[in-house]
Design a protein around this nucleic acid. Structure first.
Lengths: 231, 231
DNA sequence: GTCAACGTTATTGTTTACAATCCTGCAAAC
DNA sequence: GTTTGCAGGATTGTAAACAATAACGTTGAC
């Protein structure tokens, strides 16, 4: 691991001896660390030593400390008194719970989305349905995964429920590892595709109950898949 | 709106120790501030000046800073760059949203609780039903409010859904002001009592769908009450 | 009288230094 | 052989000093 990898921005007026440029503002650092965790760059249970992170991200230890505190509240890192912080490891059981809660909230969002769906949004939904179907037919896994994200995201946006959006975002962050693992599971798309299509159809038909039901079933299926993946 | 200066709420620890005791650990400080906010000692939009809080709670400014960061993530305080922190004011619209999300999650919990209900828990539920009914008959508002809390809390516990419990706890913290206002509204208990009894009955009958439905209706009613309270 | 430039003050953001705590390894005693 | 006590080092918790920023009031010009 390179310790001196940072750009050597030396002072123009030669005599200055200082080589350091240690300045990463706290909010930015929080975003960076969050990214590193959800992207898997920092793996579960990995120790997060303040001094090391400080060095790594060119930030003061105080800022690192604040960042770890915030991410701890977000549920991405785990802290114990005088023992430091580590990337929180989410158990299968917990991932299932998260999916269940998501299911409850997103079902409500789907219901609201069905009530409020406008022509433009319906058109977008239908296009997602087509893209998804095509992706499954041609076996484009990443395309399908992207559509999946787009669909869920769009429905939440359509619901106009900011609190729900915020809550789901946080929950997703914690379970992202399992989402990823699942989306790479062969055979999974062919199971979830009809569920997605049912959700889209219900929302486009302005049928709140059917939309809620379809979303609920879909995430129950996801939870079941996580349970049986175990690993 | 007067630009009231910093907090002058008395420190929670009643016994005033020696003036020179500049040490309140960070986790404890977080708990204290959270308490002060949800209990209403610190009112919405009140400025939270770091130096003042530091003095008030005998904590270093660094710790105050960490506490404010964490509470900001929890949604209890609002921060803007270089402009400081203040107690976050939750709008009526937002309180309704929170109640809706709670409804979705708690309905799921009620469903699970109905599936898992054991004899002891059923007995406790029935006793709550009696206490509630009695409280309404004799007009004991605070007793009814306590039963309300106990009921919701018990059902969440019964569901065994830790993630749901955690999520709801956070949401409740943000909207607690409205809960309080509502519980003091005369006539409200006579509306919510039958709803509560219906929930209890469904859970005790091991009827998940009915329990979910009853809980959902109940919180929809709460949301409606918040909407119309407006003020 | 209004408006704009400017300096002052209050408050936050950041860094550094210091103290407290915990883990590790080793040696001595039982 | 196991356990207990004790340095030594690593890491976190805390405090104070320093720098940067934005709000405020004042002065001066038009």
């Amino acid at each position: 691991m390179p310790k001196e990898s940072s750009a050597t921005a030396e002072a123009p007026h030669g005599a200055e001896r200082s080589r350091r440029t240690p300045s990463t503002p706290a909010p930015q650092l929080v975003a960076m660390l969050r990214d590193a965790i959800v992207s898997g760059h920092l793996v579960p249970n990995q120790r997060l030593v303040e001094a090391d992170l400080s060095e790594e991200y060119n930030a003061s230890r105080g800022n690192v400390r604040i960042a770890l505190s915030e991410l701890s509240v977000e549920g991405l890192v785990e802290r114990v008194q005088n023992r430091g912080a580590r990337v929180r490891a989410v158990s299968v059981q917990e991932a299932v719970e998260i999916t269940e809660v998501r299911g409850a909230i997103e079902a409500m969002c789907a219901s609201k989305a069905a009530k409020r769906a406008g022509p433009d949004e319906i058109r977008t939904l239908r296009s997602i349905a087509e893209r998804m179907t095509h992706a499954v037919e041609t076996g484009l896994l990443t395309e399908y995964s992207q559509c999946n994200k787009d669909l869920h995201s769009l429905i939440i946006t359509m619901s106009g429920q900011r609190t729900a959006a915020e809550t789901i975002k946080r929950l997703r962050g914690q379970a992202v590892r399992y989402q990823f693992r699942l989306s790479n599971h062969p055979g999974r798309p062919s199971v979830s595709l009809p569920q997605h299509l049912a959700i889209i159809e219900a929302v486009c038909s302005h049928d709140p109950d059917a939309a809620s039901e379809a979303m609920s079933r879909h995430l129950e299926s996801v939870a079941e898949a996580i349970r049986s993946s175990d690993a």
